[in-house]
Structures are given as C-alpha cells and as structure tokens.
Simulated assay, not measured.
Amino acid sequence: MPLHCESDHPGQYNDGTPFTRFRLRNSAGMEVDILDYGATLQALRVPDRASGKPIDLVLGFADPAQYLKGHPYFGALVGRFANRLCGARFELDGQTFQIVPNEGRNALHGGPKGLSFQRFEGALFEDSNRVGVTLTCRSSDGDMGFPGELTVTVHYSLDEDNRLAIDYEAQSSKPTVVSLTNHAYFNLHGHGDVRDHRLECAASHYLVLDDESIPTGTIAPVDDTPYDFRAPATPRAREQIECEQLWHAGGHDVALVLDRVARDQPLATLVEPESGRQLTVFTDQPSLQLYTGIGLDGTLSDHEGRPIKAFGGLALEAQQFPDAPNHAHFPSTRLEPGEYYRQHTCYRLTF
C-alpha cells in the first residue's frame, strides 16, 4: 500500500466529545497513530522481519481514555517547558514567574496541566512524498503560570524512507520561555528491559544534576562516566560505572549535550540486537534527554495488556537545556512576540 493517512474516533472525552486518532502508513508497513489529546504518539508499528506480525515500538495504551487518567507522558508533546524548572520559577525582565509545581517544589514538563494534557485541533495532509497531521493548541496567558498566550503547532509526517519527522512551531503574545519535545518511550524489541539496547550518541558533555535532578549549571565531559555513549554501549553496561548522579536517579535520566553537526546528520542511534531494529535520531536541538523508564512500576499496562515495568521503555527527548531560564550561560529559551519558536526532530526506523 502506498503512503496513506486517515482518521477515526476510537472513544470519547469525559464530556462526550470524541477523541480523534490520526493514522499514517507507508508502503513498508510502518504505521503511526497520533491522538488529538496531548498531540500524543500513541503507537508506532513496524512488521517483524521474521513473522510479518506488526510490532509496536513505543509504550502507550490501546484505549485512548486511559490517557485521561494520568500517565508518565507516554508519547505526549511536552511543554510549555520540557523537563524541570528549579523551584517552579524563573525570572524574565525583572519579574518572577511562579509555575505550578508538580514534582516536589519543582515544575516538570510544564506543570500538572501542561500541553501533554490538552486537546489539540488536528488536520491530515499529504503531498507527493509524505503524509502527516498538523495539530494546534492555544495555551492562555498565565496558563500554569507562564506569561503570554502561546499558540503551539506540531506537524507529524511519515515518508517512504521510514522517517517520522516532528516539526514544532510556537508564537507568544508576550515575552516568554519555550522548550517543547516529544516524550515517546521506545522499546525496539516491543517489550522487556531496554537497558540491553545499544546506544550511540554524539554527545561529549552532559549536564551535572543535583539530588533533585536539577542542573547545577556545570556542563561536564562524559569521559569515565555512565553517560559516555560516543561509542556504542548498552545502558546496562554503563550503569556499572560508579556515579553519584546515576545513583540518585536510579538509572539513566540525563541531558546529553549534543555535539553540533548539520541537522541532516544523525546524532544518536539505538539498536535492539536480537531483532536488528534500529532507530536513528536527527535534531536541531542542543540536548537529548536519555531516560530509561526508571519510574515505571508495573501498575500500567501496554497495548497488549502487559504490565509496563521499570526500564520498559527508553526516551530520547530532543530539547533545550532543562532549567535553562535559570542559567544565563545555557542556550536561551526566550521567545518574543512576533518571533517563531521552531524545532525539528526526526526518528528514522530500520527494520
């Protein structure tokens, strides 16, 4: 089947209005499902090389209503500010903005009702070499404490080279800060422990974190740390290196500072040795958050009804530096009225 896109309504919101699910498909059998709730990447299926059976490579729920009950950002668009803000606050033009905290005293991923938990308006599109969906959401001035009415648009597109591209845009009515990402948890085996996946990442430095997982401001070399993936290695092997930061987190949850190369050059590659499936990451963002699903505890079940346990998925979140507004030497995340925030990330599958 050639490139194809369609939509359906697999359930209802609490107020009775229908969810909309958008499905993108290419001739190789790669299939992507995206929900209007949280602009969520609900599923990413590819055919198994041996059996031909579709294998879902991202964590998520079969029933869209499950996303309304709270979840660890499975496949969601994350914002208005990805990752953590220390003390759930930042200063802009001499004014302190207090964000609603949702991780102790800190704000994680934009607060408890960030973009991950908002409805988006979606529309399919197609052209000669790709199919996709454009989703838009308006976050009001003061939403979760952030200044400015922010209009966020995300374009998901799939092509015949098995590339899932995610392109983000945002505009604000007032000076504000923005950092968006997608929080897909990949498992290239389909289930099981991801720490035996092999990761290579062009990152010579990482952000040092305190015991609340907040950046201290230090950008440190990865040499002799668990965060050195410049040559292919498994997270399990890198965990054997003694490191207080890794011990505090319970595993890999770190911003890898990417070495700057052209946006069309791969910055990270993830391989599942048994199946040979490979995920290649391209982005124009300065960091890649590596998270090995430390907090997953088996209380939630995946598309097949299996418990999602710790280390059941691995996130590679392309984003600005966490807590950037509180560190003057980090890349700026400021967005002025009349300017566009733009971000491009692409995941290419080999199967």
Rank of each mutant, 00 (worst) to 15 (best):
K309S: 06
A310V: 03
S332K: 05
P307L: 06
P322H: 12
F311T: 05
P337E: 13
T333I: 05
Y347A: 06
Y341H: 08
Q320R: 13
R342W: 10
D323Y: 00
T333S: 11
R342G: 08
F311A: 08
H344Y: 09
G313A: 06
Q343D: 03
G312D: 04
T333P: 00
H329A: 15
H329C: 02
F330R: 14
A310W: 03
P325R: 14
H329S: 15
H344P: 00
P307R: 11
L316W: 04
I308A: 02
P331E: 14
L314D: 04
H329D: 15
Y341L: 02
Q319L: 04
Q319S: 10
L349S: 03
G313S: 05
R306G: 05
E339N: 12
T345L: 05
N326L: 02
E339S: 12
Q320L: 12
H344W: 03
F330K: 13
P331N: 14
H327C: 01
H329L: 09
G313I: 01
N326A: 14
Y340K: 08
P307C: 07
Y341V: 01
H329E: 15
G312H: 04
C346I: 08
C346W: 02
C346G: 03
I308S: 01
N326C: 06
K309C: 05
P325W: 02
P331K: 14
E339Y: 10
H329V: 08
A328I: 15
G338C: 02
P322C: 14
P337V: 13
R334Y: 07
L314P: 00
Q319D: 09
E336L: 13
L349G: 04
F330Y: 15
N326V: 14
A324K: 02
T345H: 03
E336P: 00
P307N: 07
G305Y: 07
A310F: 01
P325G: 14
F311E: 07
F321E: 09
E336I: 07
L349E: 07
P307I: 10
P325E: 15
L314E: 04
D323H: 04
P307F: 06
A318V: 08
C346A: 11
D323L: 02
Y347F: 11
Q319N: 06
Y340E: 09
R342I: 09
D323W: 02
Y340L: 10
L349A: 05
I308D: 01
Q343H: 13
Q319M: 13
S332M: 01
Y340D: 09
C346Y: 00
Y341F: 11
R306C: 03
G305V: 09
N326H: 13
P307Y: 09
A324P: 00
Y347R: 05
R342D: 07
I308E: 02
A310M: 06
G313C: 02
R306Y: 08
G338F: 04
A318Y: 02
A315N: 01
F321M: 08
R306Q: 12
N326T: 14
H329K: 15
F311K: 05
C346D: 08
R348I: 02
T345Q: 13
G313Y: 01
H329W: 15
P325C: 12
P325M: 11
